[in-house]
């Protein structure tokens, strides 16, 4: 008789809830990776998530652990408040590009400056999803959105912001890397980075952020696969993947 073993199943840190995300949206993939890491590290029971405003505003419905919902952009401040009074809990924010890189720029930068011992999962899909496809701080030059109908003109609308590079210049940052979710190999690399970012917190090593290039098929008006191809072809060239800051003690971590 052939015995079959389970090589992959839905993580326990997930609730049995269908997400509200559009088909093919990589928010689900990013959520899943976080849940897998929490499972593997055995820290679900002490995890406290901080949800953003944006498409992932209901992230707390999908994770089987404590969660709070922040105001737009303020997740790093809220996470700071929680972590400072509950240092033994694992506190992480999950934020989109509008949340983290536009309205919440001050909060994320200062959390990094303080070397706040939190983990930040940053979803960069170059667009505002929840409000219906407006220009994000990370929208590529020339990219058409509902609020840059003629394409993003950098002369008047500014340039896309590279957060991993920016945060890597800050002394308080221990770990800032960019990964992508556009194909299986990169999904696996993303998970490793997420794991490391949580390990950084567990060992009290300070501020860790993983930027994940993600797809928004609905607002980019692509099929799910086309949206991933856009990430792999267009976004990766503007937002190069890589390790922008890995503090020596983080580098020494065996993950």
């Amino acid at each position: 008789m052939i015995e079959m073993e389970v090589v992959y199943s839905r993580p326990e840190s997930f609730t049995p809830t269908t997400t509200h995300y559009c088909p093919g949206c990589t928010h689900g993939t990013a959520h899943r990776l976080v849940a897998e890491v929490l499972d593997e590290m055995g820290i679900r029971e002490k995890a406290i998530g901080v949800a953003p405003v944006g498409c992932s505003v209901f992230a707390y419905d999908y994770f089987n652990h404590d969660f709070v919902e922040a105001a737009h952009g303020r997740a790093p401040a809220m996470a700071t408040g929680i972590k400072r009074v509950r240092p033994n809990n694992t506190v992480y924010t999950y934020q989109g590009d509008g949340d983290l890189a536009s309205i919440g720029m001050a909060e994320i930068v200062h959390a990094a400056i303080r070397g706040e011992n939190i983990t930040v999962i940053f979803i960069n899909n170059a667009i505002y999803g929840m409000t219906g496809g407006q220009m994000a701080p990370t929208t590529l030059p020339g990219m058409r959105t509902t609020s840059s109908p003629g394409g993003r003109d950098v002369e008047t609308m500014g340039y896309p912001v590279r957060m991993s590079e920016m945060l890597s210049t800050i002394d308080g940052t221990s770990y800032a890397v960019r990964r992508s979710l556009h194909n299986p190999a990169n999904v696996r690399k993303s998970k490793k980075a997420i794991r490391r970012a949580f390990e950084v917190q567990e060992r009290g090593m300070g501020f860790a952020m993983v930027e994940l290039l993600s797809s928004c098929p609905t607002n980019l008006k692509f099929t799910p696969q086309q949206a991933l191809d856009f990430v792999g072809d267009q976004m990766v060239s503007y937002y190069p993947l890589g390790d922008y800051k890995v503090a020596p003690e983080v580098k020494a971590l065996k993950v």
């Binding site: 029971e45 002490k46 406290i48 209901f58 652990h65 404590d66 969660f67 919902e69 509950r86």
Partner: peptide, 15 residues
């Protein structure tokens, strides 16, 4: 919120 050990998760939200 202090960690959902041996209980259902607590979710604090204003939405």
């Amino acid at each position: 919120v202090y960690g959902a050990k041996d209980r259902e998760p607590n979710i604090l939200t204003s939405i």
